[in-house]
Design a binder for these strands. Structure first.
Lengths: 211, 211
DNA sequence: CACTTTCTGGGTTGTTCTGTCCAGAACCGT
DNA sequence: ACGGTTCTGGACAGAACAACCCAGAAAGTG
């Protein structure tokens, strides 16, 4: 099952890379608002300001484009300009992370947040390859949270017998599920409730010294 | 925004109702496995064993069919043969409810559970009317949980100052988000972690007498 | 400055899928 | 039994959409 990664344009010129990025960006935007099924190649073409065969010059198929969007979203949590996720290693940091997510959701009226969770509902059943990509993204995300929790434990803030993997998963699930329900109910309360619950869960493993 | 409910066949004969139900059932099955976008009218037609114009005799459009599926799923939690949800009024009952969900997920290999959550990811962004139906379903579901929690509080098992609405929402979100991530990662741990977290959250509002 | 590779535009094809039409069979009330 | 309604079958139109092709411009490479 080891597939060659990107068999399309073997080498990209700077200009080419820029165009490719523009396409992915436009696709991400559209998918966030209309979903995968509701976003046609033609729509992406128009939004990206490219024409016709461009899309198939850079991507083998619509599916390949979607997968690129997924990968981009999964990676966006890691290295780039998201400083808040780099230090989820204290109760305050976790709380701030949750609040930021809630605030972001509130800002755009509980709509159009293109998290992996929104894509998962649409793709994980129908497209096996996309499902794998999404699972990888979730796993990476979870590991990031896990790193923070490990730091907390090593520092003595969390009990040694705490199942950190479970805690990290509960935080991730709360975020994804909360965003999903918030988008559907057009209210931030589901997200708030879910984050509060999992934060409390983490908190219940705090050492007396840790807080 | 008050839309007439079902403008299609004004009166249904017993036979007609049976056919209609069969179509909805087949559609539910297919959607659970292939998603909404991955399920065509033709597929439903074949699976239900009906032919051609039947579908449009009972439903105005594909969207109408989808909405019927949503409504059916939303109602299935309420009156029918699901006795376990009728009594979510103790810690043990909540635990059993969570375990049942986890077990069900494990049984079918984390696939094909047609919960509202799976539909939400696909529909809440693209189709406003379906989003409303889903939101109504979630709300009803939440109220059901809420009833149980109220009973617990009135019986003295939960503290009077507990925000029962928040607790109910956290349970619901944990279930939906957990199923979603479990389906994507093909593992029940996300669901387990999420349910454990929200159950612990509820538990943290228990009175000393209550347990 | 040749020469190759990459990039871009637009038109086109072929398929897939929703939704419609029409005619006949079964069913229901009276 | 009769007239009207509901149900069923299959064929068909029409749109939406992914994907392909060709030719030319631009840019990188020696």
């Amino acid at each position: 099952m080891t597939v060659t990664e990107e068999p399309k344009p073997r080498r990209l010129t700077p200009k080419g890379r820029a165009t490719r990025d523009r396409i992915i960006e436009a696709a991400t935007e559209l998918i966030a608002r209309n979903g995968v099924a509701g976003t046609g190649i033609e729509d992406v073409r128009a939004a990206a300001g490219v024409s016709g065969s461009q899309l198939y010059h850079y991507f083998d198929s619509k599916q390949a484009l979607i997968r690129a969007v997924i990968t981009r979203q999964a990676d966006s949590v890691l290295h780039p300009d998201q400083p808040r996720v780099t230090a989820l290693d204290s109760f305050d940091a976790l709380r701030a992370w949750a609040d930021a997510a809630i605030e972001r959701q509130r800002e755009n009226g509980c709509r159009g947040d293109c998290t992996l969770g929104s894509l998962a509902g649409e793709l994980s059943v129908s497209d096996e390859e996309s499902r794998t990509d999404l699972a990888t993204g979730f796993l990476r995300w979870k590991d990031l949270i896990l790193d923070g929790l490990r730091a907390m434990r090593d520092r003595g803030g969390l009990r040694a017998d705490a199942d950190l993997d479970e805690l990290a998963l509960s935080l991730l699930t709360a975020l994804q599920g909360g965003v999903l329900l918030s988008q559907t109910m057009l209210h931030v309360r589901p997200l708030e409730a879910a984050m509060n619950a999992s934060l409390a869960y983490v908190h219940s493993f705090a050492t007396t010294a840790g807080r």
